[in-house]
Amino acid sequence: MVKKGLLVWLLALAAFGDNIVMDRVRTLMDEETFAAHKKLIDLLFEDQNSYMRSSSVDMVKVATTLEENGLLNLALPSARQIELIFEYGGENPLFFMKLMTDTLRNMGLSFILTKEARLEKEGFVWRVTFESKTVPDPVLLAKRLEKNRAVVTDLERLDAAEWRYRIEMDGAVVDAKPIRAGESLKIVRPIRPVWMEVGAIKRLIIRELPGSHWYADVVVYDKMLRILSMKQNETRTRYLNLRLPADAAYVKIGDRFTLENLRSGLKLTAKGEK
């Protein structure tokens, strides 16, 4: 009798898993497409346990399967306002917004507007909008985030032009170029401020190269992107010797007025190993 009851419970649990996977598949599609391709969808997601990650559905894997089989429709009939909602449950919204901004920019989305930035007990919510004929590829976005050790844990299509993401950033890192003690490198004609990873050094020397006309705009951050110090010069800067605090993790280097001033670039030299 006990064995029979256990079997019934296991079958019910399996059926629940099947239902939850297919329910989540439907959230990434419009009803017409789902109905038209139901047989193919049933075949693609026949092994539904393989789309489970612990007790939740691996929505990036679901989206990948749909995309590979031409079932993830991201095109819109005409240009309209697209809204992306990013949810983050951690304690560092500045870090989160930088990582997301960099990721979207690397996908070609440079002109986004913040519709809402809200800090709640459950975490941080950032809504952005922009006009386009195509919704950003969620599979590509997830892969780009993975490069910075961030993970899309949930994904939902709320509307053809409105998508929601839940993102985990426990091991995430800023997209910054590392520099070690004794190394030198050049920054030439940057199109945006340059981020350097400086957690392993004590000093960073920055020299203006001939042909440039630099007005220093340099900010030092800790690993949580809290500002530790900054240098913003109204006069030309030919040489800057930054003594980095023990908890310095990143340095952002730009120009006070315009990056066009760095036509010939800057030379960076790292000194002192931590």
Rank of each mutant, 00 (worst) to 15 (best):
K252R: 15
L28Y: 00
L11E: 12
V152E: 00
V2G: 10
V220L: 02
F124C: 06
N148A: 15
A248Q: 00
R192P: 04
A75D: 10
R236H: 07
T134N: 09
P210G: 04
F124V: 05
L262K: 00
V60A: 02
R118C: 13
L94Y: 12
N49I: 15
L109P: 03
N19P: 08
N69Q: 10
A142I: 07
S184T: 11
V139I: 11
G182Y: 00
P138D: 07
I206C: 04
G182H: 00
L104P: 00
I167K: 00
L244Q: 00
K271R: 10
I82H: 00
G17S: 11
F96K: 00
F96G: 02
P210I: 05
I167P: 07
S132I: 10
H213E: 15
V251E: 06
H37W: 06
K147D: 12
A79R: 14
G272W: 02
A181Y: 04
K231P: 11
V2T: 14
L28R: 01
L13A: 15
L244D: 04
M59C: 02
E234M: 11
K274W: 05
D159Q: 13
M1T: 15
S212D: 06
A181I: 12
L228I: 04
V151E: 09
L259V: 10
L140Q: 11
F95R: 05
L262I: 02
R166N: 09
I253W: 00
Y88P: 00
K274G: 05
M230A: 11
D18Q: 14
F45S: 01
E162F: 12
E68I: 02
L28W: 00
V60D: 01
P136G: 11
K202R: 13
R53M: 12
E31P: 09
A12P: 03
P190V: 04
R243T: 15
V219D: 04
V8I: 14
L204R: 03
V198E: 06
R243D: 13
L6R: 09
V135I: 07
T101I: 06
L28F: 03
D222L: 07
R180Q: 15
V188Q: 10
K223P: 03
R157H: 05
A216F: 08
P93S: 08
W9V: 07
T235E: 10
L109R: 01
L72D: 01
L43F: 13
E87G: 11
M97T: 10
G199R: 15
T258I: 15
R166T: 08
E120N: 10
I191T: 14
F86A: 01
S132H: 08
V139D: 01
R207C: 05
I201S: 01
T33C: 06
D42M: 13
Q81D: 15
G5T: 11
L228N: 07
W9C: 14
E87P: 03
I205A: 02
D170G: 09
